[in-house]
Design a protein around this nucleic acid. Structure first.
Lengths: 205, 205
DNA sequence: GTCTTTGTGATACGAACGTACCACGTTGGT
DNA sequence: ACCAACGTGGTACGTTCGTATCACAAAGAC
């Protein structure tokens, strides 16, 4: 039965199984056997495509980050063609909020990985510094654009707002995740803070 | 050698050992034997004072939350007697930032517990809903006081600001924890956002 | 002065974990 | 047609985990 197989695709499938299993059991509790069962393959195969658990976890993290990037891009695209700066910014910020199963799963696991990276340096490097830095630069650029277009209230510091808003979005996401707040309320808080940055929108004629 | 012993005190000591060990190894990786070694007692004793690991973890979480509450209170007291509302608010918000070993440890473990509580419902109930709700109410009240005293810029919504600032503080704390940002920068961002809420402080005569 | 409770040590047990090993069918190269 | 590499299954190994068991010394109760 062993036809030649696409390794990259197989690894992706197994990593997706890891993500699903981790969402159910918690990242700390998921084992190689759980991943194998979730993917519908034998334990041996998980070992075959990832030599060790650590490699599997690392690959899972990278895939998670990539998926999230794609999700943000999709959200921005869904904001319509040539949307206003505020729409784009709102799309970026709300993409991280756990409003549905997919984003909830993402937030849960990404936070799990972040906690792991504090004590396990193998996980630390890339996704927790480079990716947020990039997000910060992007958002900061968007705000500066908006400022140049005269859309912002006076005295707004693009960089400080970008950093603060991203942190707020992450923090709100966590509070939604643990059940302290519901998603609508978190969205409303973000909207309020954007209103404090942007000038009042022109009311209809 | 078995003199009569204060159970509560013993449990506290062991729970502190749990916290230290978890800070070193990660909460997911700490076992009963690690706690015993860290506390300098036998495995049996840990079992004796906490019947199961789950009970130990729960007690550790509650103790952590209590310690944090005390820390915030101390910070507020350290702001001087009869400090301005802004000083109190800044003390509350910066108390959660990982600026030293103690606060770093706290933020690390509290986030670990939060992640655990997503899949392990035994941990979920109290500290992740009640405590943040209380913090929110407190901060909201402080802001309302400041507004009544005419210290805030017009149009500020105390509740939305309280929720947003707490979320921002938590998010900034996490970014410091994973090494994306240093503590000073996080403090500066919080300061900037408070400046956007409070009126300009009167410049000296 | 016995006797029950309390605190403590050492150790054993069954399960689960990550990993390693062995065997075998299939495929593509030549 | 043969042979080396690939893909896969089954299973065993050593470790570690949380928990349970057995034994026993000290301290209060009466």
């Amino acid at each position: 039965m062993p036809k030649r197989v696409d390794h990259a695709e197989r690894r992706t499938e197994i990593a997706q199984a890891l993500v699903r299993a981790a969402g159910r059991l918690g990242l700390h509790a998921v084992g190689m056997r759980d991943v194998a069962a979730e993917a519908g393959v034998s334990l041996r195969l998980v070992q075959y495509y990832f030599e060790s658990k650590e490699k599997l976890l690392l690959f899972g993290l990278r895939q998670l980050a990539a998926q999230f990037g794609a999700r943000v891009a999709a959200r921005v695209r869904a904001a319509g063609e040539d949307p206003g700066p505020r729409a784009v910014i709102e799309a970026v910020l709300t993409a991280a909020l756990p409003v549905d199963d997919e984003s909830r799963l993402f937030h849960h696991l990404y936070t799990s990985y972040a906690v792991l990276s504090v004590t396990d340096e193998a996980l630390a490097a890339q996704p927790f510094i480079k990716d947020p830095d990039a997000a910060e630069a992007t958002l900061s650029g968007l705000l500066r654009q908006a400022a140049d277009a005269g859309l912002l209230r006076p005295g707004v510091d693009a960089r400080a707002e970008a950093v603060g808003l991203l942190a707020m979005s992450a923090g709100l996401g966590t509070s939604v995740l643990v059940g302290q707040r519901d998603a609508d309320s978190a969205t409303a808080v973000l909207g309020y803070h954007l209103d404090r940055i942007f000038r009042d929108r022109p009311t209809g004629p």
